[in-house]
Design a protein around this nucleic acid. Structure first.
Length: 363
DNA sequence: TACGTCACGGTTGAA
DNA sequence: ACTTCAACCGTGACG
C-alpha cells in the first residue's frame, strides 16, 4: 500500500488518480492566482496540470470554494426522511399494508411524484431496514433514528443546506482581507457547497506548513511521511481557526497519499479548516489541508474526535520541492522549464506576503 | 503559448 | 457483506 499511492504527472507533480488534490494545493492555486500569477505559471510551479488549475480556479470563481465536490454516494432518491416518515405512518396505520399500496399512497398523498416515488422493492427495504418492526413503536422510535441512516441526510448535501454547522466563525467569506483582493466574494454559493468558505478566510489564517515544511524527505519512501502529520500540524497550527467541528474534522483528517503536496504550500492549513464541506458528504475526502488525502472514514462518525494530536508547535522543516521527485518516476521535470519565469518574481511576492517559500523551479 | 474542454481511468460511498 | 452506480477526481490531449 504504501507506495502504492500516487503517480507523477508530466510536470513532476504527485497526484493520486481519482482523488482530489490536497486542500493545501488547491488553496495555493487560488492564492497564487489572486496574486496575479497566471494559471499556466501556477500549473508549472505547483506541478499540477493546467486543466486542473483551470478547473479549480473556475470553481472558485463560481462558488467561492476551493473544495472539491462531493465524491461518492448517491442521491437520496427515495429514502428521504419525509418519505420514510410517511411510509412509517402508513405502516403503523395498517401493519398489513403492502408495499405497492404504500407506493400508491405516497403518490396519492403527493408525498412523492411519479419521478421520485420509491419502487416497491425500495419500500420493502425501507420497511425492513429503517422502519423495522413497527409493532413496537416505542422501541423503534428510540432506536431507529440512528439506525443505518446517518443522520446527516443527504438532504443536506443535496439541498444545500447551508452552512455547516461548522463554521460559525468562519462566516462567510465576506470579509475579504484587505490585502488580498479577492475577487468574488461569493459567499453564496451556487451549488451545493454549503458554506464555501472562501479563501479569504482561509488566507487569513496562516498556516502551518510554513513551519512545518512538511514534507517528505527525499528518501525513497515515497509517501512515508504520512500526511497524518500534516493534518495534525495544521490544526495545531491554526488554533485560531475556530472550528474543527464535525465537519472540519473530517476535513482535516489526514490523508495519506500526498506527500508532496506540502512541499510548497504554505498556507493552506488554516484554510482547510475554514472550508468545510458539507459535512454531509464529503466527509473526509477532502481532507485536510495538506493532508489532503485522507481517507477518513466516516466523518460523521468521527466527528470531532480525532484531531487532536500534536502539540502546538510542530515544526518541521524543510520542505522543498524536491519531494515529489522521489516518487515513482524520477524526475521528469527536467523538461524545459523556463529559467526565469515570471513566477519567480511572484514568488517573492508571495513569500513576503505569506512567508511562503515556493520552490522555485529548479533546474 | 495560454487555456478551456473533455475523454479517460480512477475512487468513493449511499442505496 | 457485497454489489451497483452515479457522483467526483486529475491528467493528458486536443483545439
Amino acid at each position: 500500500m504504501e507506495q502504492a499511492y500516487g503517480e507523477v504527472n508530466q510536470l513532476g507533480g504527485v497526484f493520486v488518480n481519482g482523488r482530489p488534490l490536497p486542500n493545501a494545493i488547491r488553496l495555493r492555486i487560488v492564492e497564487l492566482a489572486q496574486l496575479g500569477i497566471r494559471p499556466c505559471d501556477i500549473s508549472r510551479q505547483l506541478r499540477v496540470s493546467h486543466g486542473c488549475v483551470s478547473k479549480i480556479l473556475a470553481r472558485y470563481n463560481e462558488t467561492g470554494s476551493i473544495l472539491p465536490g462531493a465524491i461518492g454516494g448517491s442521491k437520496p432518491r427515495v429514502t428521504t426522511p419525509n418519505v420514510v416518515k410517511h411510509i412509517r405512518e402508513y405502516k403503523q396505520g395498517d401493519p398489513g399494508i403492502f408495499a405497492w399500496e404504500i407506493r400508491d399512497r405516497l403518490l396519492a398523498d403527493n408525498v412523492c411524484d411519479k419521478y421520485n416515488v420509491p419502487s416497491v422493492s425500495s419500500i420493502s427495504r425501507i420497511l425492513r431496514n429503517k422502519i423495522g418492526n413497527l409493532s413496537q413503536p416505542s422501541h423503534y422510535e428510540s432506536t431507529k433514528q440512528p439506525t443505518s441512516q446517518p443522520t446527516l441526510p443527504y438532504n443536506h448535501i443535496y439541498q444545500y443546506p447551508y452552512p455547516n454547522p461548522i463554521s460559525p466563525g468562519s462566516t462567510k467569506v465576506g470579509s475579504h482581507h484587505p490585502g488580498v483582493h479577492m475577487a468574488p466574494g461569493h459567499v453564496s454559493i451556487a451549488r451545493s457547497w454549503p458554506s464555501a468558505h472562501s479563501v479569504n478566510n482561509i488566507l487569513g489564517i496562516r498556516t502551518f506548513m510554513e513551519q512545518t515544511g512538511a514534507i517528505a524527505g527525499a528518501d525513497g519512501t515515497v509517501y512515508s511521511p504520512k500526511m497524518e502529520e500534516w493534518a495534525s500540524v495544521n490544526r495545531t497550527g491554526f488554533p485560531a481557526t475556530q472550528n474543527i467541528n464535525g465537519i472540519e474534522k473530517s476535513a482535516v483528517d489526514p490523508d495519506i497519499k500526498y506527500p508532496q503536496a506540502a512541499s510548497s504550500l504554505s498556507t493552506v492549513g488554516g484554510f482547510v479548516q475554514a472550508c468545510a464541506y458539507p459535512s454531509a458528504n464529503q466527509y473526509g475526502v477532502y481532507g485536510g489541508p495538506g493532508a489532503g488525502y485522507v481517507t477518513p472514514g466516516h466523518h460523521w462518525q468521527a466527528q470531532g474526535s480525532s484531531l487532536a494530536h500534536h502539540g502546538p508547535g510542530v515544526t518541521v522543516h524543510g520542505g522543498d520541492i524536491s519531494a515529489p521527485m522521489t516518487f515513482k518516476h524520477p524526475v521528469r521535470e527536467v523538461m524545459h522549464r523556463k529559467p526565469s519565469s515570471p513566477i519567480i518574481k511572484h514568488q517573492d511576492a508571495l513569500s513576503s506576503v505569506h512567508g511562503i517559500s515556493i520552490p522555485a523551479s529548479s533546474t
